[in-house]
């Protein structure tokens, strides 16, 4: 399954999901995306920048103080920015690869399902690239 197919499959599986993107955290660039409707490059760049801030950047560093006493080396694995209008979910790829999955879905989505689906999709993508 190609990266594009994996992203399409995830977006189709999640009701209310309008965008799934695979992004490089070090450069904050979207590598591939599956969307419904128009999502401009500016929006994709903003999502990728938010993923970087949440999973490896200053926001993640601040949050890690909460778990630093238990596991100071643990990175942020999952992040979410939630509003009354949408839920944006960011899932870091396992291992050393500085990549992440970004999902924009309905505000009342089952977040457990979104995260599980995101991890499965990441495994598919990384399995494909190995």
């Amino acid at each position: 399954m190609s990266v594009t197919d994996a992203l399409d499959a995830m977006r189709s599986e999640l009701s209310g999901c309008s965008l799934v993107a695979y992004t490089d955290l070090s450069s904050a660039l979207v590598l591939s995306a599956s969307t419904i409707g128009q999502h401009g490059q500016e929006e994709l760049d903003a999502l990728s920048n938010a993923a970087k801030l949440a999973l490896t950047g200053v926001v993640s560093e601040g949050a890690s103080a909460v778990w630093a006493a238990s596991d100071p080396e643990a990175p942020a694995e999952t992040a979410m920015f939630l509003t009354s209008a949408e839920a944006r979910v960011f899932i870091r790829s396992p291992g050393e690869a500085p990549e992440a999955l970004v999902c924009v879905c309905a505000p009342d989505s089952d977040l457990n399902v979104v995260v599980d689906c995101g991890r499965t999709t990441l495994a598919r993508i990384l399995g494909e690239s190995e």
Binding site: N49, L53, D71, A74, T78, M80, F81
Partner: peptide
């Protein structure tokens, strides 16, 4: 950079892997 300008009721979640605190 995290939220749209007109966002109301903002929630932020950041989590490590299970078992990391």
């Amino acid at each position: 950079a995290l939220f749209p300008a007109d966002a109301k009721a903002c929630g932020t979640v950041i989590a490590p892997k299970s078992g990391s605190g």
